[in-house]
Design a protein around this nucleic acid. Structure first.
Lengths: 241, 241
DNA sequence: CTACATTATCTAAAATTCAGACATTAAATA
DNA sequence: TATTTAATGTCTGAATTTTAGATAATGTAG
């Protein structure tokens, strides 16, 4: 959540980013906690600059808020209920932070701007969790990965937004080949399978899963991966192109 | 395209509606032509009132612009390129209609409001073309159904919007059972098949198509339809529920 | 009553999916 | 160094689904 100052944004329109990562059989979402009194968790959000594509805005917000760049990102849903506003959350935040923020915390103009009803475009990003070192910015107390099934209560409708993003991740996983974007550049067949099992929360048969994935015809098989374990070394694969 | 006056709309956010109908083996889109000099075709569009859900806004716009109500409607994509604006179109319209509109045609405030860069949420609606009598309102010279493959050149990116809507119609047709919403309440198997063949622009085998559709398990079979033709009468079906 | 046109259904072949068995192999162990 | 172990890689036949063709059913016309 940026506090808009003189920046030339489109009013009442925001972008919320759901950043998925995968680690140790857990599907995770990157959630910053705001650096204020009170437990305020909020998806990385921001606004659209007047002369900026919305996709570019999503990229910029993602980069500015988390340091993540050059990654897969896609819009998935617009959240536009009538009462959808920051006001309740902000009032609570200001109330709990009177001492540091003063009576209002931001000037009236800012407050009026940001507490209006907002329509928000949801984007989801898929990252290699090992390659990303989330960048904590001043506004954050922390920025951490949470299991998608054990998210903290977030502000506004952000928990719903994540749920909807997960729906779309499942729908598009084969179609848009997005599973691989959650893994490192090279990975074993077992790793892909465990990722699928996590995303869908159900087991897949190993033999048939391998066939299904290879039949997608998008992977190159590389040399074997010698893990040091007392067993046959698995092949490594890499997304072609 | 409403010309907003004092109405309390969210700025720079619009809704564009792609209304699909089906008639005589043609997939059609309802497109109004504006009642001005110059051939201005524009999808039914409008804005979101401050205290209104975006879905409700889409319903209202659809109803107000075409008379269509109580119909299936769904958001499918947000169009938000940086330069996305009415300005070119409006300038051309004002230029061609100086005589009736005066030098500017609307006051400066309106003009500034409406020529800003707009982000638009695309909705598509599916209607029974026989049940709908499109309501021509004052701003329209006409409102007609066009074959989706023979649309007139429309303003702004409206032709792209229809193309994207068609993509989503195809993707969701089985999943969301939306094909049936383009037919009358009761229909024959042949009619469904022809609709599918039109939407996907390819033939389906009659015997297997019937099985596929019946296996969806969402149709009730009614009495036969006696057409007067010298052949076996087909059964009628109706979407259950 | 027969011919015709079209719809409805059945059936076998082909393709795909599914489940289990078997083969391979890198490291550990004896 | 041979054997065992634990995992990966591959094969195969059964079950299921899809496809394609054939056959049965039926309302009207002549």
């Amino acid at each position: 959540m940026d506090f808009p100052s003189e920046q030339n944004y489109i009013e009442q329109l925001s972008i919320d980013c759901v950043i998925f990562g995968y680690h140790q059989k857990q599907l995770k979402v990157l959630v910053p906690k705001l650096n204020f009194n009170g437990d305020f968790y909020a998806l990385p959000s921001g606004f659209v600059i007047q002369d900026e594509d919305i996709d570019a805005a999503a990229d910029r917000i993602l980069r500015g808020r988390t340091g993540i760049q050059d990654t897969y990102i896609d819009q998935f849903h617009v959240f536009g209920k009538a009462g959808r506003s920051n006001e309740t959350f902000l009032d609570k935040l200001l109330e709990l932070n009177k001492d540091t923020l003063g009576e209002k915390g931001m000037n009236k103009k800012q407050y009026d701007w940001i507490t209006k009803r907002f329509v928000s475009i949801g984007y989801y990003a898929l990252v290699d969790i090992n390659k990303v070192i989330p960048k904590k910015i001043a506004i954050d107390a922390s920025i951490d990965w949470y299991d998608v099934r054990e998210l903290p209560p977030m502000i506004m409708d952000h928990n719903e937004i994540v749920a909807k993003a997960l729906d779309h991740l499942r729908i598009n996983i084969d179609d848009k080949l997005i599973a691989f974007k959650l893994l490192s550049e090279t990975f074993t067949m077992k790793e892909i399978q465990e990722l699928y099992e996590t995303v869908f929360n159900k087991p897949f048969a190993r033999n048939n899963f391998q066939k299904k994935i290879l039949d997608l015809n998008v992977l190159d098989r590389l040399e074997k991966k010698f893990t040091g374990a007392a067993n046959k070394a698995p092949f490594l694969y890499r997304l072609r192109g």
